[in-house]
Amino acid sequence: MATYYWEPLAGFEVLRREMDRLFEQFEPAGPGYRRAAFLPGVSARTYPLINLSEDADNVLVEALAPGLDPDSIEVTVIRDQLRIAGEKAAINPDIKPEAYHRSERGAGRFTRVIPLPAEVDGDKVTAEYKNGLLLLTLPKRAEAKPKQIEVKVS
């Protein structure tokens, strides 16, 4: 018969192992490649933030992206993948760094791929950029629309 002793600190060790296991899935190429790149690249940032809603015909996406150059915004759709890319321009590159009292807004290129809940018709997508919010209306493809099934009561 095995004898168990109560070890209060053993619980921490179990917890640490569980946490390590949890984070393993975010290291796609294994621990050897973990520090291959210091900066993860533009698409790793979650920018812009989005809100997404859906009705029977459309998927609506609103992205929080103030201060973009409207010409730089690129929206592409492949089946049920939406990609938003663009550039938030620096205010004025001539301003010297020492002239800044505060710098919180940030600037630079971004790209984000958003999985959509249904396949959409890429030809009919409309995009509107107003007051720093990008509103996309993505009509669903006919095959992706839900079909109402009538329930017969007998």
Binding site: L64, G67, I91, R102, E104, R105, G106
Partner: peptide, 22 residues
């Protein structure tokens, strides 16, 4: 809101991100 504040010869400039504001 996040802001940038910088100084020019004429004065200070405050830049604030206010998305969705008319």
């Amino acid at each position: 809101p996040p802001v940038d504040i910088f100084e020019t010869e004429k004065g200070l400039v405050v830049v604030a991100d206010l998305p969705g504001v008319d």
